[in-house]
Amino acid sequence: MIELLIEQRRRNLGGGMSVGRVLPFAKRRMVGPFIFFDHIGPLDLVAGIDRSVDVRPHPHIGLSTVTYLFSGEIMHRDSLGYAQAIRPQEVNWMTAGSGITHSERLEKARAIGDHLHGIQAWVALPTADEESAPSFTHYEGNDLPSWSDGGVHGQLIAGSAYGLTASARTHSPLFYVHLELEARATAEIPSAFSERAVYVAKGEVEIGGERLVAGQMAVLKQGASSVSATQPSTVMVLGGEPVGERFLYWNFVSSSQDRLRQASADWKAGRMKLPDADDQEFIPLPEGDPAKPS
């Protein structure tokens, strides 16, 4: 059932904030349209933390960012003028399209402390939508269908699965699900998509007799499959249809390397607007050649 097992790799974002990078991976850059998958925390943050822990303003093109938390709070601000706190079991869905800038700040933690744990994923846009107008939408409550059955407690974040459809506007066929599994509970994994993966955020599970622990992603072969918990576990299930080859450089995704060069030049020259409510301290373009994307 498992085609490839991916271990998260720790990446320091600066200021004491680190994440577990899962996608892209050398042997598997994407799963369906999912081109980026970071495990945030779990991390205890004390009141009065320095602003260096914040993710300062930075740009995106050609993708949608999907932020989903199990605990804690992050304040999103962007160049469209949106300011929206993201809290557990809610979704901030930001489509960069032709270009957007945003920041992610830990304002609640700075004020009173916090326990931060969640996932940020990037969904690559189909070629026809890469240069669409940027947009931002926040989803919660009935926008995110949920269910409980046989020790499986699920929430559909995006797309269609388990006979449900979430409200988030997606640009290609996909599904993205949060499952809380009680010990010995089993959940079927949607099979109507050509590419699928399971990520364990907490606990331990089995797929086809193979064990997965927290921090591991299993990319699945096609066909029917299920995931069973050997202990209480938090699991993300995701997948969809491929959108074609994509180049990734820093925070930019595109089917064109020339577009990566243009976006890099625009950011470096200050031609991309910063979030109105943020200060002007932004993340600079890293060293490297956009013509040789990672």
Results as ranks from 00 to 15, higher is better:
Val152Lys: 07
Glu107Ser: 12
Leu164Asn: 09
Glu107Gln: 08
Ile119Phe: 07
Gln155Asp: 15
Ser98Cys: 05
Thr95Ala: 08
Ala168Arg: 06
Ile100Met: 10
His138Gly: 02
Thr137Lys: 04
Gly141Arg: 10
Gly163Leu: 07
Ser160Trp: 00
Leu164Arg: 06
Arg169Lys: 08
Thr101Asp: 03
Ser132Asn: 13
Ser167Asn: 03
Pro134Trp: 02
Lys108Ala: 06
Gly97Cys: 09
Pro145Lys: 12
Thr101Val: 03
Ser132Met: 15
Asp149Val: 11
Leu125Gly: 14
Leu125Asp: 11
Gly141Cys: 10
Leu144Ile: 06
Leu106Arg: 01
Gly163Pro: 10
Glu130Val: 10
Ala133Gln: 07
Thr165Glu: 14
Ile100Cys: 10
His117Gln: 14
Arg105Gln: 14
Gly118Asn: 14
Ala128Ser: 05
Ser132Ile: 05
Ser148Ile: 12
Ile157Asn: 02
Gly141Ser: 15
Glu131Met: 15
Tyr162Pro: 10
Ser103Asp: 08
Arg169Glu: 06
Ala158Val: 02
Ala133Val: 11
Pro134Asn: 04
Asp143Asn: 14
Glu130Ala: 10
His115Asn: 03
Leu106Gln: 14
Ser148Arg: 11
Ser160Asp: 00
Ile157Thr: 02
Glu130Gln: 15
Gly97Asp: 04
Ser160Val: 00
Val152Tyr: 06
Asp129Thr: 04
Trp122Val: 03
His138Ser: 03
Gly97Leu: 06
Leu156Asp: 09
Pro145Leu: 06
Leu106Glu: 02
Gly150Arg: 03
Ser167Gly: 08
Ser103Ile: 10
Asn142His: 15
Ser103Phe: 14
Glu104His: 05
Glu131Ile: 07
Ser148Phe: 04
Asp114Tyr: 14
Ala124Gly: 13
Gly99Trp: 12
Ser103Tyr: 15
Ser146Pro: 11
Ala161Glu: 02
Gly159Glu: 02
Gly113Tyr: 01
Leu164Asp: 05
Pro126Gln: 05
His138Gln: 09
Ala96Thr: 04
Ser135His: 12
Gly151Trp: 03
Ile119Lys: 09
Glu131Val: 04
Ile157Arg: 00
Leu156Met: 15
Glu131Asp: 15
Pro134Met: 02
Ser103Thr: 15
Met94Val: 10
Val123Asp: 01
Pro126Tyr: 08
Gly154Pro: 09
Ser132Leu: 13
Ala161Gly: 04
Ile157Leu: 04
Trp122Arg: 01
Thr165Phe: 00
Leu106Ile: 01
Ser167Met: 09
Ile100Arg: 04
Thr165Asp: 11
Leu164Gly: 09
Gly163Gln: 06
Ala168Phe: 12
Ala109Tyr: 00
Glu130Ser: 11
